[in-house]
Nucleic acid binder design. Structure first.
Lengths: 99, 99
DNA sequence: CGCATCGGAAAGCCTAGACTTACCGTTCGT
DNA sequence: ACGAACGGTAAGTCTAGGCTTTCCGATGCG
């Protein structure tokens, strides 16, 4: 899930699709990698349920998949709550002997 | 940012810290990797502003950093909106010729 | 009916980076 | 002051995986 978004190129694909559905070739046109590379990234994203594809003739149109997006959103929402609570304790004695 | 959370071990460190502050050795004790490995992961997480450290004697206590957490939360919130809008269009003609 | 386009699969290369061991500086305890 | 514990750094190894080129099946078009 987050493994899929760990790669910069894959994240670029993901962000391109956020702007709207696109075919494989159209995605590759905006990226500095070859079309097969994009295909491989899309496969990973699809397995992570972050994108889904639709066959239109010989073209495959990819779209963001709300399922994976909801999952990852929930993941961080969960930690957000915990971190907030833990942070509330720390505001009293600011621990700034960092770095 | 998301690069940092792309690695499974690093994500494990992150999730351990979500349960509460911990020293390096305490983190390493719950993971199948050596202590220096944990140190290296913490360095990456710190550079991504996902954790912060506090010196307590010779120990370094690490905590989740709300800054990075807020950033990553905002990142997905942004795409969540876009995906929702794009998804609203697609519900009418269900594109299910997938896989 | 081929010819062209689109996209996934296979094979191979090559670098990024995750991990280990070894070492050293720093701080605490006695 | 000395020894021990904690943790960051350095150096080196080794694998995962990102990318390319090549190829092939499938669909649309003339």
């Amino acid at each position: 899930m987050l493994d899929a978004l760990g790669d910069p190129t894959r994240r670029a694909v993901f962000e391109l699709l956020a702007a709207g559905p696109r075919s494989v070739a159209e995605i590759a046109a905006d990226l500095p990698v070859s079309r097969p590379a994009v295909s491989q990234h899309l496969k990973v994203l699809k397995e992570a349920a972050l994108v889904s594809s639709t066959a239109v003739g010989t073209r495959r149109v990819y779209t963001l998949d709300p399922r994976g997006l909801a999952a990852v959103r929930g993941y961080f929402e969960q930690f957000w709550q915990q971190a907030l609570a833990a942070f509330a304790d720390a505001v009293e004695n600011p621990p700034e002997e960092d770095q």
